[in-house]
Nucleic acid binder design. Sequence first.
DNA 1: CGAGTATAGTTTACAGTGTTCAGTAAATTA
DNA 2: TAATTTACTGAACACTGTAAACTATACTCG
Lengths: 201, 201
Amino acid sequence: MGITERRNREKLRMRRSILDAAMKLFVEDGYDNVSIRKIAKRIEYSPATIYLYFTDKDEIFFQLHQEAFSKFLAVQKETLKIQNPMARLAKQGANYLEFAQKHPEHYDLMFIIKAPLRKLKTEWNCGFESFDILRQTIAECIDQGHLGNNNVDVVAIHVWANVHGLASLIIRDRLAMIPEDLLPQLLQEVMAFGTETLANR
Amino acid sequence: MGITERRNREKLRMRRSILDAAMKLFVEDGYDNVSIRKIAKRIEYSPATIYLYFTDKDEIFFQLHQEAFSKFLAVQKETLKIQNPMARLAKQGANYLEFAQKHPEHYDLMFIIKAPLRKLKTEWNCGFESFDILRQTIAECIDQGHLGNNNVDVVAIHVWANVHGLASLIIRDRLAMIPEDLLPQLLQEVMAFGTETLANR
DNA sequence: CGAGTATAGTTTACAGTGTTCAGTAAATTA
DNA sequence: TAATTTACTGAACACTGTAAACTATACTCG
């Protein structure tokens, strides 16, 4: 059965190369400017071929969405080494914002974009897992008396909304009222302020 | 010169009806599913006609963007009646979230969507004005010793990011980990928690 | 009032999009 | 070698934003 195995390998390689091409175009040209035809041209196949490997455009984006998430998840799991939950929480927040700024197209895919949401409700496992890491950390903080006696979910969503709000305002250029050169410094202060408001509970 | 005046009126009426049709389609079908042709069909003119009143699709969206903003601005100005700046701040936050949930397509246009951003940098006056109302309120809070001795912009961006984060997570369905029926209650608690963390400074 | 011009609107067209499907050519199997 | 399975493509459909050329009407001026 060496032949079918090789064929499976080739099939996987093809899927991979489609996804890679799509992601590259994504990062280069932005979400809205990626078309099936462009992806096809990039890998030097006809557009129709892509439909032999993915049912539609959404499936490609959903796949990339998942991969972006597992990338992010890996970064967040790194923080689990940090013993002190408050320090860990701060690091998770910093990671989040850094990820958003370093990989805006990935972030877009993960948290902002509208497109491939049909499947999101049933299959957003990475999202849940990532939220759970945050949740877990906050639970520890509360246990150790750092965050008052609050509902874990309330605090978790509060924290997440905080960093996501910042990240998406930046990515979508809605902080135009702040001079560009002052922004990085200011952002750091905002993050510091955020953790401070939490710590002094 | 009654003739040119009438013509101007008619020109304005036409612009108005294009914008109205566009906004309706927007709300009905979502941003991505509105095309020039659909707008044209709605007002019973040819697609090309629209280009006699707007240079391109972006200009339509930019116009609607501005109108959505002035609508929001009107709501926010209402809060200026409230004397106590802390209470005013809380009301502004609640308004913000309510606006986002009641008019998701408007909100999308204002704060999330990517499309018509070329002009945003130079002409986002409503955005600035609206930010200024928040800023002003926070300045008063700081003056009265409610928010510690912090930089106004830092706190303003913090607060904005907070509510915007919540709003955009809701609109983009990224709170799927929370059972739908528990969400409204939880959101209120998150908002309450947010104001609380600020107040106890 | 009639001729000429400005204007509003339409028709037609181009280049792009996602997607489908009949058809082909090559690889594999019998 | 013949039959079958597989991978792939070209052409087409129904859309998209937009531009240019054209027409019909409204208005201005002699």
